[in-house]
Design a protein around this nucleic acid. Structure first.
Length: 104
DNA sequence: ACCGTGACGCTGA
DNA sequence: ATCAGCGCCACGG
């Protein structure tokens, strides 16, 4: 799978995350691991940073539930509007974490 | 080719 | 809860 195709795969998956739920960068990487051969949360992070506009980027957070640096305000506002379980500075991962399996 | 730089994540102190 | 240390992979200098 070429880098371009990988980017597509990531964006596609992010678009499937339901409102009110979230996925961590690592979870996205894992979900695509078999099909892509790669599994790098960091890579997913850079992809979101560079090609993330256009998809619900606020539904992707780090494994601790922290929001993307520099976009906390925007992300928080959108998540709150979608009724995403929040806790402290970020998202309540135990309650909001979503996986592709769950949505089919 | 080498190096620094990230919207990352796990482990261990 | 916080912090350093590593491993990770694409990019720009």
């Amino acid at each position: 799978m070429s880098p371009d195709e990988y980017v597509e795969a990531v964006l596609e998956l992010v678009e499937r995350i339901p409102a009110g739920r979230v996925m961590s960068y690592g979870a996205v990487a894992d979900a695509l691991a078999e099909r892509s051969g790669r599994a790098s949360a960091r890579l997913v992070g850079s992809i979101m940073a560079r090609h993330g506009g256009g998809v619900p980027w606020h539904r992707v957070v780090n494994s601790a539930g922290r929001l993307p640096p520099g976009h906390e305000r925007e992300a928080r506002a959108r998540l709150r509007a979608e009724g995403t379980p929040l806790r402290g500075v970020g998202v309540d991962m135990a309650a909001a974490s979503w996986s592709p399996e769950e949505g089919m």
